[in-house]
Design a binder for these strands. Structure first.
Lengths: 329, 329
DNA sequence: CGCACACCTGAGAGCGCTTCCACCACAAGC
DNA sequence: GCTTGTGGTGGAAGCGCTCTCAGGTGTGCG
């Protein structure tokens, strides 16, 4: 701060100032092996005084660790970079990686050919991967070197632990709410059909509609607002009497609402709309969106921690989703 | 992909396969110094065949470069991590950093004490910093080692080049539109008053109101939706006859619209609302938001490129802002 | 023919750190 | 006495790369 700080302190400087060898200083600072109380105190004081910060690059090099955590998102095009859901994953990951001196990189894996993961395997800068919206093909493309350093938010595999929200329960809660408020002709705008998490919501929807003796009114979406709008219009054309639309993501729901309004329909008076994700905007949109929580922040933090600590984690970790009732349904 | 890939190829492997020394291989791959056409071809082929990816860690170590670009956001609390504006900066930076093997880290600099930048100066892992929403105090805290590796999106300084949107022009365009559509009692919800970019919008607002002989109706906001809501209510209380509210950010505008609706007012019928930023949601919100563009993506990409290439850049680069007319005003 | 000057190459010295290994002092046990 | 430990320490070998430096081979020119 005030100090000119011409050259940042190195381990040598600390060791010399403390009157010990580099090896001892490294042991003290790294917290492994033996060290006398005296040495510990002297090294600690010297490091403090010199404002020593270990060089994460050198440390990573010798440890063969890598210094970059990749958030790899499978999708049709690189607009995945703009997905608010992905943003939340990235910022949560940054929160846990920052203090460890690990940077985060955002990578797009084309849906048609997710083999880019193989390339990441050759990049020694990569210390781990968090897969988002992954497919079986992407899971299969995980290179050997990265085994145990890849986790998935969503679908998992025997070698890739999964951290996921309980889609079925969330969808169920939303649909029951719709039903409880008198809606009977409920259509659903799904997520991309290649996503297992999207399919789980669909299954929950089918089950509930089936139990109520109602037909399934399904339109395929892709989690984006734009597609949500066209899907809503398609639904209206096929089933003019729908009184509720369940969107598989909040972004989709926003598109649905905009389309409904453009069509002269009032939300929730004529058609109720509910989403899934509980994005920050859901609370301030007009009307405020009824949705189910998706604790991506906690999920991503857990995923990043698992990768960084290399701790053994359960093959599947589920996070609860709860209903948030607002104005739109 | 298919190959077992037990051990990623090193430079040694490439050199040996090509029948040259490590030095020559490095020169060819690095593209500096002399190399015969023959050597170039052999090394290139060997690297290709072995799937060689240089270790960014080792490269950074020897170059003393660092392998992490920090997006440092000044703010009151660490909710800056959730700011959609910051997200756009991060993803745009990731886009240019990824291919260079550089990771992105998100850092929060407390408004009250932005000296954390000093600590970053000691961290040799950091190859550069993009400051967001910065203050003079933060600018002053830039450590010597980072000089020339720090750029700012917003306010700059003699040692920190600035990449910024033309706030004044954007604000002016929005306000003129409001005026042109018959609004005369226009209130403004500002950004945080400590931000120079926020102040520039305020100046543009004052100028235009002054020229029209209208009083300035200012309420302080902080770019968040929540604060936008309370600010709108405060404005309504002080000037019950306002017929338009100009919000200094889209997020603020969303809060304003929600509050207005809760208050029984119709947008834009009773009160027109316009924002600034043109977030993705602005197009799908209800009503769709009239706003001015803020090309953060291009700005952040330019900033990241400047840091990475270490090219000399102009002290100030301005990006144009244009009006986007939708439903809310 | 000799000398300068190109172009090209490989040996090797690190970048800053971790960690293996040898070593030392001392205490306890046969 | 000698061994066997046990807590503590420093020397030194690398991690994979870049880049300087000392050559080596050719070409042009006096």
């Amino acid at each position: 701060m005030g100090t000119p700080d011409a050259r940042p302190a190195r381990l040598d400087d600390v060791a010399r100032a403390a009157g010990v060898s580099r090896a001892t200083a490294s042991r003290v600072l790294g917290g492994y092996g033996f060290a006398s109380a005296d040495a510990r105190a002297r090294v600690g004081a010297a490091a403090e005084r010199l404002g020593y910060v270990p060089d994460p690059t050198a440390r990573a090099l010798v440890r063969g660790a890598g210094v970059r955590l990749v958030v790899a998102v499978v999708g049709r095009d690189d607009r995945v970079f703009d997905d608010p859901y992905v943003h939340r994953v990235v910022s949560a990951a940054s929160r846990v990686c920052g203090p460890q001196g690990v940077g985060v990189a955002l990578e797009w894996l084309p849906l048609a050919d997710p083999s880019g993961l193989g390339r990441l395997g050759a990049d020694r800068g990569v210390c781990g991967v968090i897969l988002v919206n992954t497919t079986q093909a992407a899971l299969d493309a995980v290179p050997a070197r990265l085994r145990g350093r890849v986790v998935s938010i969503g679908r998992g595999s025997p070698t890739v632990p999964s951290f996921d929200v309980d889609n079925a329960a969330g969808a169920d809660a939303v649909l029951r709410h719709l039903y409880a408020t008198g809606r009977r002709r409920i259509a659903m705008v799904t997520g991309p059909r290649w996503l297992s998490c999207a399919e789980r919501s669909v299954t929950a929807y089918r089950d509930l509609m089936g139990a109520a003796g109602a037909p399934a009114r399904l339109v395929t979406g892709d989690f984006t607002a734009a597609r949500g709008g066209t899907a809503a219009l398609a639904a209206l054309r096929r089933w003019p009497d729908v009184d509720a639309i369940y969107a598989a993501s909040d972004a989709t729901a926003f598109g649905v609402i905009a389309a409904l309004r453009a069509h002269g329909l009032r939300v929730p008076h004529d058609v109720a709309v509910a989403g899934f994700d509980d994005l920050p905007y859901a609370a301030v949109s007009s009307p405020a969106l009824t949705t189910a929580t998706h604790p991506v922040d906690r999920i991503a933090a857990a995923a990043a921690t698992a990768v960084l600590t290399q701790a053994r984690v359960a093959p599947t970790t589920a996070f609860a989703s709860t209903l948030v009732t607002r104005e739109s349904a």
